[in-house]
Each structure stands twice: as C-alpha cells, then as structure tokens.
Nucleic acid binder design. Sequence first.
DNA 1: AAGTAAACGAGACGGTACGTCGTGTCTTCCG
DNA 2: CGGAAGACACGACGTACCGTCTCGTTTACTT
Lengths: 181, 181, 181, 181
Amino acid sequence: MESTLKLLEERGYASMTIEQVAAEAQVGKATVYRSWPNKAALVLDAVRGRLPDVPTAETGNSREEMLSVAKQALAGFFGSPEVQAMLPALVADTVRNPELRRRLREEIIEPRKARSRAVLERAISRGDLPPDTDISLVLEMWAGAMMFRSVYFEDSFDDSVLSRLVDATISSPPRLPRTGP
Amino acid sequence: MESTLKLLEERGYASMTIEQVAAEAQVGKATVYRSWPNKAALVLDAVRGRLPDVPTAETGNSREEMLSVAKQALAGFFGSPEVQAMLPALVADTVRNPELRRRLREEIIEPRKARSRAVLERAISRGDLPPDTDISLVLEMWAGAMMFRSVYFEDSFDDSVLSRLVDATISSPPRLPRTGP
Amino acid sequence: MESTLKLLEERGYASMTIEQVAAEAQVGKATVYRSWPNKAALVLDAVRGRLPDVPTAETGNSREEMLSVAKQALAGFFGSPEVQAMLPALVADTVRNPELRRRLREEIIEPRKARSRAVLERAISRGDLPPDTDISLVLEMWAGAMMFRSVYFEDSFDDSVLSRLVDATISSPPRLPRTGP
Amino acid sequence: MESTLKLLEERGYASMTIEQVAAEAQVGKATVYRSWPNKAALVLDAVRGRLPDVPTAETGNSREEMLSVAKQALAGFFGSPEVQAMLPALVADTVRNPELRRRLREEIIEPRKARSRAVLERAISRGDLPPDTDISLVLEMWAGAMMFRSVYFEDSFDDSVLSRLVDATISSPPRLPRTGP
DNA sequence: AAGTAAACGAGACGGTACGTCGTGTCTTCCG
DNA sequence: CGGAAGACACGACGTACCGTCTCGTTTACTT
C-alpha cells in the first residue's frame, strides 16, 4: 500500500493523515493499523526502496567513484524532494520513538553507508587514500554537510562543491586514532 | 514566558502542548497566542539564548581556537539535551513553515556560523589555513557530521574525533572555486 | 441543541449518531460531549418537555377526568411516534446505565405519575373510588397495558378500550393492603 | 450454540459481541452468521425455552390458578434476571427490525399469552369470571404492570400485590365491547 | 477406500462510530 | 480595559465491532 507516497508528496508528511491514506487506498483504517503501528513506520516502509541508489560500480578511478557516491548517494539522497519532505519529520519522531530510530538507522542509513564504505575501501586498497582513513567520519562529514545545507538552506550541493569536497578529503582525510605503537 | 523550557525538557517537544505551557505559566492560552503564532515560534524564542556560546577568544593558536569552536559550538550544541529534544522537531516543522525556517536560520544558525567564521578567518590571516579556504563548507562539514551522528546514532563526538577532524581540515581544507582567470 | 430531535425522527434512535447531531448543529463533537455524557442523556434532554401533557383540569366528573388522563397521558404518550422511537432504546440503555434509569424515572415517569395520581385522588375524595384504592397500581396497570400493546403489537388503545379499562377499574380497583387492625 | 447465554449474563446484552460469542464457543464468526442474521436473533433463540413456564394445571380453584399464572408467568418472567437483561434490548431493536418484533411476539409473547388465556377461559367456564371478560386486556394489564414496574423501578411484584391485582380483576374485569344488540 | 463437497475455525478486510485530544479562535467575566 | 479562564468548531487520533470475505482444514457423504 504505497499510495502513501502519493499523499506524501501532495500533502507533505505532517498534513498527511492515516485516514487519508486509508481512504485513498480504498482500505479500512484498521487495515493500515494492522500493518503499521504509526505514520512514521508506514512512511518509512513506503519510501524505502524508492531511494536513489549508491553507485558502487568500479571504474578504476577512485576520485571518480567517490564523486559518484557523493553525488548520487548523498546529494541525490538529501536533495530529492521525497527525502526532503519526509526525513526531517521521521527524524523528529525518533525522539519519542526509539524503535523508529533503530529502523531508520538500520534499514536506511547503515545499508547506504555500507555500500559507500565499500567504495572508499577500494580507494584505500588502490592507495588513493591512506590506510588509516576514518571512513565512517569521512562519510558522516559528507552526508552531514549535505544534510545541513538541505535542512537549513533548502539548497543542495552542485558538482563544483562536491569536487572540492572530495578533493580536500583525498588530500588529507581524517585518520583513525592510532591504536598500537 | 520561558517556563516553556521546563515543559520542553520534562515532556519533550511533541508531547508539550501550548495549553500546558499556558497553564504552567498561569496564563491564558490567548495570551500565549498573542505573542507567538505557534508552538515552534514559542520554543524557538524560549531556547534561543540558552544555547552554548561560540568561543571566539583569541589564544594565538589557530588549531586550539578551531578545536574550541568545534567542541563548544558544534559538539556542545548538537550534543546538548535541549537541542537534541527540540531541533529535529523544529526542523521538521520548517517543511510546512518557511517563516520558521527563516528564523531558525537567521536567528540561530547564521549568527553561530558568523562567529565561527571569524575564528577561521583569523586562522587564514595567520597563515594557518590557505586564503581560499571555503570556510562555509568547512563549517557545514563539521556541523553536519555532528548533526548526523547525533541524529542517527544518538552519539556525539569526543575530543579525539574532533582533533582528527580539525587536523585533517587544516592539512587540506576544501577550497573556494577559482573566480579569476 | 435540540436539533437532535430532527435526526431522532428522521433516522431513529439507533441510527442517529452523535457525530451527525454535532454536524447538523454546526457544532464540534467535543461540545456535545461536554454537555452530555452519552447519546441517551442527550436524547432524554431533547425529548423532555416535548411530551404530551397530563391533563389535570377539574371537570367535576371523575370518570371523564380519568378517561382524559388515560387517553392523553398514557395513550398519547406511549402512542406518540417520538416516544415509540426513543423510549425502548432508552429503557434498553438503562440496563447498563443506572444514572439514566434514575433520570428517566425521576424526570419523565414520576412527574407524569404524580400528576395522574392527583386526578385519582380527586376521584377518591369525591367518593368515586374507594379510599383504599392502590393508585400506584392502577396507574401502573394502565400505563403498563398501553406500553405492552405499543411495544409488542405496535398498536395503541382506542377510546373504547380505554372506557372499558377505566370502567372496570372504577367498579373494582385494586386496594391497598390493610395496614391497621 | 447457547454459550451465548453465558456471555449474556456475565456481560449483558449490549456489551456482548458476536465475536466474543464465536470465540467463547470456539467457532468461526461466519458460522454464527450462517445461523443467525444478527445478535437479536441469536439471543432470542438462546433464551427461548429457558423461560419460566406458564402453569396451566387445573386445581379447581380459579383464583388460585389465576394467581399462579400471574406469579409464575408474569412476575417470574419479567422479574427473572435473564429477561431483565435481554428483553428491553430486544424490544429496542424491534424498532429497526420488524422481523425481530414478529418473532418476539409470535415465539415468546403469544404462546405465553395463549396458555394464560386458557386459564382465564377456564375461569369463565366455571363462572368465576363473566363471559364477556376481555381476557386479552386483562393479561395485558397484568403483564404491563409487571413490565412497567420492572423496567422503571427494577422492582417486581410480591404476592400481596398480585393477590390484590387478581382480586380486583375478578370482582370487575374489563369487558369485551358489546357486539350484538 | 478414495474422492468430493459442504461446513467449519480462523481471522483479514472495508467500513463506521466511538470518545479523547490538541489546535487556534472567540467570548466572558474579573480585578 | 487587559488578561485569565475556558468554551468553541474542527478534525485526527487509535480502538472496537460490524458483517462480508477468503483461506485452508476437517468432516461426512458419495461412489
């Protein structure tokens, strides 16, 4: 019952009601509640899968691959209208709803992060990034910058910014803490 | 009427109602509405000012100053319980409420960013950062990474991470696009 | 807000919903609930007062007066469409709702009974009924017979039946138990 | 499937749901609906037969026989907890459901009335009641008085009241209208 | 004895009304 | 006359049953 999506985009998350979704889908309200405990869960399920992919194709060029990730997985993700409409609301609901936070993290964020990480690990193995690069932190920086700009400035990163961001990171990425001598 | 704050922390943003605030403050609901058009505006006003300061004191050591900014303005900001409780909800409301977004940006984000920017500009003038450093982007990366981690992992950055983040940036910050010939 | 009555007659008690009443009256559902705890209370208040009167006018002729009571207070009451539509439902609700039973008895039944009793007492004082007539029982018999026929046979008593009923009672009414020696 | 009765007495008519009945009886809801169109029909069938009998035994003493009828068929009927719990609700439903009214009348009321009528006819044939006694009206008066008191006063008639009621009737019962010259 | 049809339990379904709650506006007093 | 108190219209919430409807799975009858 993903005609949730229709209402999501035409009314926005906050103005979308479960009653409307049920009506739109020609379905009893109880049926919706039988499958999802609340609006957040419903939306999360509806949106999952419609998300832009993380490109992991190997091109031989680490910078190119990383740019690709930054562009499609991050700019494409945080910049997409659906995500802009729903993510902040979902995030806000996580404050009261730890289960939702868990699902958001495990079903949306982590898988994307894992695929992105693969690309950076490949860059390390090619020697294009130092072996002690703090991949997690790199990705959080990138994603965070995107998220920040999209949230507060309704803006997203263009190719030029992404290049400069990636290049700066390649030159000197944050390192993992030294563990041994 | 900042006993809003009391309810904010003991009930959370979503469960706090304007009725409760009015009752708590021994005030008519209409009186609250006379001053603020909605809950978001009320909370924004209540919280503003209670926020951790951006330290701009000059110590002579750019790295030290930048770390200080990162620690207090960013980790201290996104990690504080009040901000965690209210920011995501406020952000979610901005989707429907452009005025709120404007105020959030202009009254909270921009001023903090401006003060942080001053610190980075000082670093540039000392020669500790290249003159074409994209300060905005640096700050967005830092803030974004903090925000990201706090939102999805309920976690905040410890000193070690901040050091590594700052050091990486100092070694090779993102640059402004070349504007000249 | 007695536009309850309108819906009562056009939909019947069971099919009338509080939501409809509220909508019809251009009023919030909560406003209805603020004034009446449930449908029964609402209907009881709406109907009270619209009921046929108990005629107590003194004509000098006891039989005539008693017939008048029987006809208007009983046949007119149990035979009226409004009462037929609502009384059984109200009575059914009393099973779960003792407060409703109390109100139904004290606000509808007892006052009518009291006024009818006055007429019979006058007949006693005229010597047209024995002094130890069990007035309560007489009235219950009369009312009960009406109610019975209206409930199970959708029928009401015509003048002829009422005459014979009254005449039989005048000839030999049920007596009060002897109390003294 | 008369474990309906169990739920009837422990929850009351209104709070008893067909789902509960089905669950209690370890039976599918559809199975219940296959046999009865609605709750009223189910309850009517469940209760029928459990009703107190109308005693028609011939004792030779008309007054005694009539008292017996009044006591067991009327006081025993309207005073029994099962009947008190279900009859008003059933009656209320008849307003919307003429078929139910028909069954209630033909399967419950009429048979009892017929058996009671036999007793009164025997009294007439013995000369203890006038030949033109309006038996129907007598029974309706009696039943109605019982019903009335049970419904509005949660009370039932004791032996003394029944005696006085019967005696009054014997002295001067309501007559049938004269039909011929 | 196997094959088939009916009846069955279980429970999901589309609906409808419930009674509660919060919103933002509007009215009523009181000090 | 300003403000507290709170009534008000509105509408979503999540719950409970309704009566209908598929599902497999017994039964019990036919062949």
